[in-house]
Design a protein around this nucleic acid. Structure first.
Lengths: 138, 138
DNA sequence: ATGCTTCCTGTAGCGGCTACAGGAGCAAGC
DNA sequence: GCTTGCTCCTGTAGCCGCTACAGGAAGCAT
């Protein structure tokens, strides 16, 4: 099984950095294609699987949600997916990233000024606690 | 039970916006104090609980992790927590927020330029797919 | 007493994995 | 051939932070 065209699951795991259990999990839930088996029942993976797993990993690193990854993979994966559809998914993702950035920026300034107020003087009340101690929805 | 000093769980839920099941869950896992009970076995909440739940909710809205919320509550909650300890937790949180912002900024520009490259020309290969299709760890 | 609402406990589900246990495949050494 | 030792197999249960349900009891108004 040292042929390029037949990897055992452990080897696939090593090459892609994806946990063995996770690979089987991906198969179970339909994220990756079910590989063929040896006569003894062991999974045999090919280059396509290596690519797909690497793809999944990369996409998750880039913050794509599992649902988005699924969507791209269901378009045929990196090999066949249509450029425009993938681009649309990425564009959505970009929007989300930007929204999150805006949220965080607001939060950052709120936290920073509050912490600063607290640090400045040793007044009776703690600005940070006050900040947290109001449950009216923002 | 219309006394200010004795709320049923439903009323507490309504006032704080925290799900009834979640309130009981918080009790089970030790996030909030176990309230006294009526003779019939029903939980009776007071102003302290209202405050604590509101506090938890607010802190979660502000992105504090459950562990951080727990930490602050274990300092005695909004009422007794020490200003400096709370401030330290908040400062850590602020750091994390800033780190995340930096990450997102990088991701944003990567996504934006990649999507843009793809949009520009109808070349053979899709820049977005190429971006995703490399599983070497960043 | 009868209904109606609220509350109680206990248990199971979600997603996205991860971690076992207990058994079988398989290659290599002797 | 047989044992050793690794990898792999299946199935199940655990993690977090909740949420949802079932089946029953409390409590209030009529």
């Amino acid at each position: 099984m040292r042929d390029e065209k037949g990897l055992a699951i452990g080897e696939l795991s090593r090459r892609t950095g994806v946990n063995i259990e996770t690979i089987r999990y991906f198969e179970r839930v339909g994220i990756v294609a079910t590989p063929p088996r040896t006569s003894g029942g062991r999974r045999v993976y090919g280059a396509g699987h290596v690519r797909a797993l690497g793809f999944i990993r990369r996409a998750r690193e880039l913050g794509f949600t599992p649902a988005e990854v699924r969507a791209i993979l269901s378009l045929g994966g990196p090999a066949q997916a249509s450029c425009s559809e993938v681009r649309e998914i990425a564009a959505h993702h970009l929007e989300r990233v930007r929204a999150k950035m805006a949220d965080l920026a607001q939060l950052e300034s709120l936290l920073a000024t509050t912490i600063d107020r607290c640090e400045g003087d040793g007044a009776a009340s703690c600005a940070v606690i006050e900040l947290l101690d109001q449950y009216t929805t923002t």
